[in-house]
């Protein structure tokens, strides 16, 4: 699994499209639902965009997220051609939000990203179109 992160409008999508031109996309930014069972997509390469938006929308526990992540990983490992790419925007570096809801969203997202990074063999941080490989 490959996790791609970085600030908003930093060119993450462009970078992933160039790298994985045949990926089947599911995007939280387009209002599309999170796909837990990737068999439903009928594709070998899947790109899941907007992890932080699904974290906000679904308010799952960390445990639930861990099991989803591990499900994606297992799906990928079942066939050599399979690839899962997950894109999540970094929202961790601003001022602590005033509203409890947004504080908790930011915390949740940080924890899910940490679990994501553990499950991935490769992680890239995109900074204005340039990738920094930070794992793998």
């Amino acid at each position: 699994m490959h996790f791609v992160t970085g600030g908003a409008f930093n060119g993450k999508r462009k970078w992933v499209i160039t790298r994985y031109p045949d990926g089947k996309w599911v995007s939280a930014y387009k209002g599309e639902a999170l796909v837990e069972d990737l068999n439903a997509l009928h594709a070998a390469t899947v790109v899941l965009e907007g992890l932080e938006a699904w974290v906000k929308e679904l308010s799952f526990s960390r445990e639930k997220w861990r099991s989803i992540i591990s499900g994606w990983r297992k799906w990928e490992q079942q066939a050599p051609a399979r690839q899962v790419i997950v894109i999540g925007t970094d929202i961790s570096k601003g001022i602590v939000p005033i509203e409890k809801e947004n504080r908790s969203w930011r915390d949740q997202t940080g924890w899910v990203y940490q679990d994501m990074v553990v499950a991935c063999e490769r992680v890239d941080m995109i900074w204005y179109g340039i990738n920094q490989r930070i794992k793998g």
Partner: peptide
């Protein structure tokens, strides 16, 4: 651009401009 941007349309437009400007300058 590394913080929650919220849903305000002006903030999103501004962020889009700045992010793309930085990408081009880099």
């Amino acid at each position: 651009l590394n913080e929650p941007l919220g849903t305000n349309e002006l903030v999103l437009k501004y962020s889009f401009m700045l992010g793309n400007l930085h990408q081009e300058l880099v």
